[in-house]
Design a binder for these strands. Structure first.
Lengths: 224, 224
DNA sequence: TTTAATGTGATAGTATTGCTATCAGAATGA
DNA sequence: TCATTCTGATAGCAATACTATCACATTAAA
């Protein structure tokens, strides 16, 4: 996968662009690892500052608070997923084949070579699986939404919904289908790892293959 | 809807059963309203104590912390949903018809008469929509799961998955389908209210009717 | 009936969290 | 050269998430 890719995210996500400075880049890279390790609730700017030999106040110059940092990380994930989808489906004309590819990327995107990318992709994916919902399940959703903080997520859903509509133009719920499938890909992985009775991959080997099969069944079932 | 129904939840959810005392019942009833008003992050036992003319420490006698209270409320919701499903599908033999009923209850359960029930059902549903994910998206999922805190959720999924398997015995993902549909019912309502570009109900009147149609399409699509 | 045990809510703490205000030095630019 | 801006560092503060201790009331046992 081609990387060192600099994704330009909505400037409202941060106070100062963390990609511009050494400290900013370490902030982001280490925050992924620390949130992955201790969870978002236990994560604080103070702990992160200690890790990267900086101070709390310095980090607050980049992000208003830890919630904004989470939204930034999740947006980064959506943006990179969207990039990968565009890249891989570029010269695939048949919409069903495109959708199939999207589902594959969705369930396997986090296996890319972590050395070529500025962030630990595997850790970021675990963070997204565990914490992404918290980025919008807050009192400030509407305000945050007005500020455009969820633009990356929306663009991704819009892109894939367009493929769905190409397959079946009269299907009335393309966006709902895509947002559901996107969510389900992550949730089912979480369930397989932590609440296996809410899914069906218990005894099997390749959890991701099962999730992919499940999602394909869902998507192509309604579009049949 | 028949109520004043006392649901017996897992005793590990609380330190002292809040249903046993007047204070306990007020705690639970008012917590639903307060969380609905200010959100789970802003909710504290201190604020709740002020509301019901009690003290912080008194409330800590019932629940170890506010997270346990949330798990309790969500479990109460799953249990009452399961009760309603059993009640309404009791004498419906045809599994497809049963599943259809379940989906209807899922999307409309919160319209029941609030005066007959100990909790404000509409407020509880809003709390579930906004906060339920936070009950298991924590560092302690595995521990909490071992303690049986998610039993109600699992039982509900198992019940409905059995209906799915009755419809199509060789379908390999009945639990994944049910947990996905359960989640989607809430998520799509949230999207319709806060992030409308992630769903397709923007211009329409009856959001719940749309969600029901979407879920029926999903479920009966894969089971066709 | 006395006394022991238990359950109740109230008061007063404490460590941590989530910031903010202020600062001094380094780099940048006019 | 001097002003501006940008950097990270120090200190502090209000709120949060509890905990420890208390006095009192009730119940249960001897």
């Amino acid at each position: 996968m081609t990387t060192s890719l600099r994704l330009d995210l909505n400037a409202k996500l941060y106070l100062r662009n963390p990609q511009d400075t050494d400290l900013g880049r370490r902030l982001v890279a280490e925050s992924v690892k620390l949130i992955d390790e201790i969870g978002f609730e236990q994560f604080t700017f103070k702990k992160l500052a200690q890790r990267i030999d900086s101070t709390e106040a310095s980090l607050y110059r980049y992000f208003e608070n830890k919630h904004r940092l989470l939204v930034y990380l999740v947006s980064w994930y959506w943006a990179s997923l969207r990039f990968q989808i565009r890249f891989h489906t570029h010269n695939v004309a048949e919409p069903r084949q495109r959708l199939r590819l999207v589902l594959e990327i969705l369930t396997r995107a986090h296996h890319d070579d972590p050395t070529t990318t500025p962030l630990d992709e595997a850790a970021l994916y675990r963070v997204v699986v565990n914490e992404a919902s918290k980025s919008y399940l807050t009192r400030d959703v509407d305000e945050d939404n007005r500020a455009g903080l969820f633009r990356e997520h929306k663009s991704l859903v819009a892109d894939v919904a367009a493929i769905v509509s190409a397959i079946k133009p009269d299907y009335p719920f393309p966006h709902a289908l895509v947002s559901t499938v996107l969510e389900a890909a992550r949730k089912q992985l979480f369930y397989a790892q932590h609440l296996p009775s809410l899914t069906d991959t218990k005894t099997r080997q390749d959890v991701e293959a099962d999730i992919l099969a499940f999602l394909e069944g869902l998507a192509f079932g309604v579009l049949a």
